[in-house]
């Protein structure tokens, strides 16, 4: 379905590009997105942002094509084969959200050798010839404790909800949380894996709560705050400060609590629109700009006073998002130099 519709969009875009006046050096360049997974709302928003920005770029003649391809099985071998196909199809740049930081390096190398620009983001690759748009996940962990330090200068007990065991992102965020917590008055009294899913987080929290003391705050990794809130609501405990992850249901719950009892917290995650930043970075490289191999993107943060605006801008059931423009990409590139 996705492939057909992106193909149609690409065909439509091509025809439009043929009509529209040429406006950039890259107007005949074709960019492909190689995506390893589409099975959650974050990835869906990511793909949507890509096609929105990509189609517009094609329409205005910035590039000739911005096609998105997603593998069905979330496996490195499958993605490597997909990248090889893209090389054969003659794309000028490949933007990758990788299934593994190392396992598709061979295919990435082949692409580089064929003169193709490879930009990885979110799930980055370690192959030196590729560009990396990395997110400082460790900082994301530290930021949560920094916020809680301000809220509770006397510290307290923390419950940590982690992501999927064995995944690099989970280790990094958790390391950041533990690092910062060691320097604070907070103590992490419990840690569970919520697999970045509300229902798994809810079950894990419900299971560990009976054996825990009073909890001051819950640190999370995104996508699990609402589940934690549900688990707490099912007991007679008082609601702790749960750090949210920008999902619409989390923001909606927060707004509800805020209206009812002045509940305060913060929310942070990566915007799915980071795919559009990668798109513009690839375009800039194709345009001949000098770009450092390692770039970083800022977190998308929602504070107490921005809650209502963020909630309004987020489609129901989706995740808070920003789409990046060419100027944003240029700013990020300049900041790294």
């Amino acid at each position: 379905m996705t492939k057909t519709s992106t193909l149609l969009a690409a065909v439509a875009g091509l025809t439009m590009a043929a009509v529209a006046p040429v406006s950039a050096e890259t107007s005949d360049k074709r960019i492909a997105l190689s995506n390893n997974y589409a099975g959650n709302s974050w990835r869906q928003a990511m793909l949507e942002s890509w096609s929105k920005v990509g189609d517009a770029a094609v329409a205005e003649g910035a590039v000739a094509a911005a096609d998105a391809f997603t593998t069905s099985e979330n496996q490195a071998t499958e993605q490597a084969a997909q990248i090889q196909n893209m090389i054969l199809q003659g794309y000028d740049a490949i933007v990758i959200n990788a299934a593994s930081p190392t396992a598709i390096n061979g295919a990435v190398r082949e692409a580089c050798d064929a003169g193709i620009v490879v930009v990885s983001f979110d799930g980055i690759v370690t192959e030196p010839c590729a560009w990396r748009i990395a997110i400082d996940f460790r900082q994301m962990g530290r930021d949560q404790i920094t916020y809680l330090n301000e809220r509770y200068p006397d510290g307290g007990n923390l419950l940590e909800i982690r992501g999927l065991a064995g995944v690099f992102v989970d280790d990094e965020i958790s390391a950041g949380i533990h690092e910062a917590a060691a320097d604070s008055k907070f103590e992490i009294v419990g840690s569970v894996h919520g697999d970045w899913a509300q229902d798994v987080a809810q079950r894990a929290v419900a299971g560990i709560l009976p054996s825990l003391p009073e909890i001051t705050a819950v640190v999370t990794q995104g996508g699990d705050g609402y589940g934690a809130a549900q688990a707490f609501a099912a007991t007679d405990r008082s609601m702790p400060t749960i750090v949210m992850g920008n999902r619409q249901d989390e923001l909606a719950w927060w707004a509800e609590q805020k209206a009812a009892n002045g509940y305060q917290t913060t929310s942070l995650s990566i915007a799915p629109g980071v795919s559009t930043l990668a798109f513009w970075v690839a375009q800039q490289i194709l345009d001949g700009q000098e770009v450092a191999k390692d770039l970083s993107v800022p977190m998308l943060r929602v504070q107490q006073d921005e809650l209502d605006a963020a909630l309004e801008a987020t489609p129901e059931g989706s995740v808070a998002n920003v789409e990046y423009s060419r100027d944003d990409a240029i700013a990020v590139i300049e900041a790294s130099q």
């Binding site: 709302s41 869906q44 129901e316 059931g317």
Partner: peptide
């Protein structure tokens, strides 16, 4: 799974209040 993705693009719609109440 593809039908599920295609039908709602991963958007999370809340259950009706009485149903959520019943199940919790």
């Amino acid at each position: 799974q593809s039908l599920a993705i295609w039908s709602n693009r991963g958007l999370r719609i809340k259950p009706p209040e009485p149903l959520a109440e019943f199940s919790t």
